[in-house]
Computed example of a mutant assay.
Amino acid sequence: MNSRSSLQHAEGRFDVEVKPQTPDNPAAEGAGLARLSLQKRFHGDLEGTGQGEMLGAGDGKTSGGYVALEKFSGTLGGRKGSFVLIHRALMVGGAPRDWTIEVVPESGTDELKSLSGSMTIAVADGKHTYAFAYSLLP
């Protein structure tokens, strides 16, 4: 985080649709990794959409790992723009471990140009919520 601006917090929920994608080249087929598209709708302090791509390995229920890139477009605390999130997680014994979601540096646009931060996601009873700790330069 940038020390010249104060840390802010955003919370809310999101709906997500994950769709399997087919490999589109021999190298992707040979890797045997799962490729998925992400479509999200954020509600709360983040209002907008997220679109992305995920690569996964393992069964996703008891063990595995994934990486993803997601572009958010909408508003954060009333400020309009877009930014990119990078996701990384491991699944060990059915529980997420080392789950990180960070804003890609310098990916913010418009009123979110100076955005930096990290997000956590919780899933309970099939509902997804987020907590986003971020900073914006004035």
Rank of each mutant, 00 (worst) to 15 (best):
P23Y: 05
T120D: 15
R97C: 09
L36Y: 10
G77F: 08
G108I: 03
P26I: 06
G56T: 02
G60A: 12
L115M: 01
M91T: 06
L85N: 02
L85H: 00
R41D: 05
N25Y: 13
V16P: 09
G60R: 06
V92N: 04
A95D: 01
L33D: 04
E102H: 07
G81D: 02
A57N: 12
M119E: 02
D45K: 03
G78E: 01
G32C: 05
P20F: 09
A68Y: 05
L90S: 01
K71A: 15
A95Y: 12
Y66E: 03
G30P: 02
G81V: 00
T109G: 10
I121E: 07
L85R: 00
T109E: 03
F14I: 04
G48L: 00
G65I: 02
F72A: 02
G74K: 01
G12S: 08
E106H: 06
N25Q: 07
R35K: 06
Q51F: 08
E106C: 10
Q21R: 13
A57R: 14
E111D: 13
L55V: 06
K71S: 07
G52D: 12
L85W: 06
P20H: 08
K19L: 14
P26Y: 10
A124P: 02
L38R: 09
W99L: 15
F83E: 01
Y66K: 06
A28H: 13
G108R: 01
G78M: 04
T100L: 09
A27K: 04
V103M: 07
Q51D: 11
R88V: 12
G44F: 04
I101M: 08
V67T: 06
L55T: 08
S107M: 01
D24E: 15
I86A: 13
L36H: 15
L55Y: 13
D98W: 10
G60V: 15
G50L: 02
E47G: 10
I101Y: 13
E53G: 12
Q51H: 11
G77H: 03
M54T: 13
T49G: 09
Y66A: 03
T49M: 14
N25H: 09
E111Y: 04
G50V: 01
L46T: 04
D24K: 10
L36P: 12
G77D: 12
E102Y: 11
Q21I: 13
E102P: 06
T109W: 04
A34Q: 13
E17Y: 12
